[in-house]
Write a protein that binds this DNA or RNA. Structure first.
Lengths: 107, 107
DNA sequence: TGATTGGGCAACTAAATAGTTGCATATAGC
DNA sequence: GCTATATGCAACTATTTAGTTGCCCAATCA
């Protein structure tokens, strides 16, 4: 599974809103996810396809309705494997930054 | 500070590589950050500008050299404020997903 | 069975993005 | 002062992306 696809999927505010909506209530149809959004059904559908391609959303057909579910695993993996690196180096980086910036202003 | 800018900054693999490089060693110049990359100095410079605009990289001039430092704070804030939401709802979402997918195959 | 509803596909437009080349500017060193 | 070096700025191209419109297909239901 490509981490790049997940990062790219999260880069759009509309898609992050869709994820939020699915986190609040799973199993929503395309029509439901379109409500209150100032764009066409096709636009929302494309965004959902990107999310599905990044494996952040899983879908299921029930009759003619397509139900959407959040899959939190890839987001969690980014937190653990990628952001975690910056957590570990955080103090060192901040100390480095602080030193440099103080050096700037002090002399 | 715009969280959207941070997400967009992280969406490109070249920029994530640059962040990694700065995490390993802070204070690198533009020239150093260009080494080993198959693109022009200007391309790297633009990527660094995006990172700087998202406040993920801080810069400092020393003579004619521009030193780059990682600022891990915005990344950490995304982990805490945004990804944290998904951590909290993770078990519920996974249970929801599992139920639906089992329902699919079982009946 | 025939209208309505939920969704997909394809072509198109406009804007953003990644990258390039060429030239300008300022610092460092001989 | 002249040349090397480190970087910036601007214009341009090509690709990707977000969004639209128009039409089609399948499921529901009266």
């Amino acid at each position: 599974m490509s981490m790049d696809a997940v990062f790219k999927a999260l880069a759009d505010p509309v898609r992050r809103e869709l994820l939020d909506a699915l986190r609040e209530r799973g199993g929503q149809t395309l029509g439901e996810l379109c409500e209150g959004r100032a764009m066409t059904r096709q636009a929302v559908s494309k965004h959902l396809a990107v999310l599905e391609g990044a494996n952040v959303v899983a879908t299921e057909w029930r009759g003619r309705e397509k139900l959407h579910h959040l899959n939190p695993v890839p987001i969690q993996e980014i937190a653990d494997r990628w952001i975690g690196k910056y957590e570990r180096g955080r103090l060192a980086a901040l100390a480095d930054l602080k030193l440099r910036l103080e050096g700037e202003t002090d002399g």
